[in-house]
Design a protein around this nucleic acid. Structure first.
Length: 359
DNA sequence: AATTCGGGGGG
DNA sequence: CCCCCAGAATT
C-alpha cells in the first residue's frame, strides 16, 4: 500500500467513524469548511496531555464565557484560572491568557498560520503549531502527538525507544500526510490511536490499516512503542490548616508565581516533604486551637505522591494572620463560594475532607 | 537530554 | 496499582 492509498483508506474510515467533538467541523459538512482557528487553538491547548472526554466540558465553558480571542484577552488572569481549575497543568492556563493577549495586540486578533509565528506564541510548541496549521488552515503539516507516535511506530515496526527516533517518526508522519484534507487526516490518525490502535490490546481486527501494519505482521503491535522506564514516585507528607471564621469564611492563599500549582489558590499547609523529619519547622498560618480531622487525604502528582493530614480551627472575625509576608496573598472566602474559586484538585480534596462533604 | 509541570480513565 | 493521555517550558 503506497502513501496515497494509506491516506485514502484512513480518510474513508474517518468519514464513517469520526467522533463528533465540539471543536471539530465535519468531516461531512463540506470540503473547504475549516474550523475556527480560535476554537482549534483553545481545544489543542486543553488537549495537551489530557483526554478528550475530560476536555469537552471545559471547552464548552470557555467558549461560552469568551466567544472570541478578544474577550479572552481582555479578562483577568484569575478568571481564567478559576475556570481552568481541575484541568491540571496550570501553566497552560497562564500561557493561554498570555497568548490571547499577544494575538490581539500584535496580530489584530487573527491567529497566524506561519510555523515560526505560531511557535513564538506562549504555550504553542511543535505539536500544537502543526495541529493548528493543518486543522484550522488546511496546511500540509506533520501532526505528531502521543497517538500518532504509537500508530507510526507500529505501522513501521519501529522497535527503538521512541526517545531516540522522534525525528524519524516526525519525518514518516509528514511523508504520509496528504496534500488534500491534511486536517482531517491528522485527526483521523489521532482518532485511530485513541479508539483502535490503543496502547494495550489494540483492536487490530477492526483497523483500516491492518494490511499496511508491519507490527501486526510481526505480531508485536502491543509491545510498541518502546518507552523509557519510569522512575518511582516518592511519598511526601504534610499538614493542611483549615481556618473557619465565625462569619462562615475560609482562609485561602494564592500560591507563588512559579512552581507547582503556581498562582492558584490553596489551603495553607506545611511540609510537602519527603520523610517526616523536618515537617515541624514551619508554623500554622494563625494561632488557634487546632483540632485534628480524622483520617487523611492522598493525592498523586506527576512526580510524587502526597499524603496530608488536616487540622481545623474556628477563629473570630478580627483574628490576625500570623505571617506578615503572607497577608497580601491571603483572603477570606465565603464557604458557598469555594466551588467557583481557582482551587486545584488537591485543595478541593482538603476542603471536602475538612467539611465532610463535597464543595 | 532530563526534569518539571495535574488529573483522570482504563486495564 | 500502573499505564498513558491531541506536550511545553525550563534546566
Amino acid at each position: 500500500m503506497d502513501k496515497r492509498q494509506h491516506a485514502s483508506v484512513l480518510l474513508s474510515w474517518y468519514d464513517e467513524h469520526a467522533r463528533v467533538l465540539p471543536w471539530r467541523v465535519g468531516p461531512k459538512s463540506g470540503r473547504d469548511v475549516r474550523a475556527d482557528p480560535y476554537h482549534v487553538w483553545l481545544s489543542e491547548i486543553m488537549l495537551q496531555q489530557t483526554v478528550v472526554k475530560t476536555v469537552i466540558p471545559y471547552f464548552e465553558t470557555f467558549l461560552a464565557r469568551w466567544p472570541t480571542v478578544f474577550e479572552l484577552a481582555a479578562c483577568d488572569q484569575e478568571d481564567v484560572l478559576k475556570r481552568w481549575a481541575g484541568l491540571g497543568y496550570y501553566a497552560r492556563a497562564r500561557n493561554l491568557h498570555a497568548c490571547a493577549k499577544v494575538v490581539v495586540s500584535r496580530h489584530d486578533g487573527v491567529f497566524p498560520s506561519d510555523e515560526q509565528q505560531l511557535l513564538a506564541l506562549p504555550g504553542i510548541g511543535p505539536y500544537t503549531q502543526s495541529a493548528i496549521r493543518a486543522i484550522a488552515f488546511g496546511k500540509r503539516a506533520g501532526v505528531v502527538d502521543g497517538n500518532v507516535e504509537r500508530v507510526i511506530a507500529r505501522l513501521y515496526a519501529l522497535k527503538k525507544p521512541v526517545r531516540e527516533i522522534k525525528s524519524q517518526i516526525q519525518d514518516k508522519a509528514f511523508a504520509l500526510t496528504p496534500a488534500s484534507r491534511p486536517g482531517d487526516y491528522a485527526q483521523a490518525m489521532m482518532d485511530l490511536g485513541a479508539t483502535i490502535c490503543t496502547p494495550k490490546r489494540p483492536a487490530c481486527a477492526r483497523c483500516p490499516l491492518q494490511e499496511n501494519c508491519l507490527a501486526l505482521k510481526g505480531d508485536c503491535a502491543a509491545a510498541l512503542p518502546v518507552r523509557a522506564a519510569k522512575k518511582p514516585k516518592p511519598v511526601r507528607t504534610g499538614t493542611a490548616f483549615l481556618v473557619l471564621r465565625e462569619d462562615g469564611c475560609v482562609l485561602l492563599r494564592q500560591r507563588l508565581d512559579k512552581g507547582l500549582l503556581a498562582k492558584m489558590l490553596e489551603v495553607p499547609s506545611r511540609g510537602w516533604i519527603e520523610g517526616q523529619k523536618n515537617a515541624r519547622n514551619e508554623s500554622a498560618p494563625v494561632q488557634a486551637q487546632w483540632q485534628q480531622v480524622p483520617g487523611f487525604i492522598t493525592h498523586t502528582f506527576t512526580h510524587f505522591h502526597l499524603q496530608l493530614d488536616v487540622q481545623c480551627a474556628h477563629v473570630s472575625a478580627d483574628h490576625p494572620v500570623l505571617a506578615a509576608a503572607d497577608r497580601a496573598r491571603c483572603r477570606w472566602v465565603p464557604r458557598h463560594e469555594l466551588g467557583e474559586q481557582a482551587l486545584p484538585g488537591v485543595m478541593r480534596k482538603i476542603l471536602s475532607h475538612g467539611f465532610g462533604e463535597p464543595l
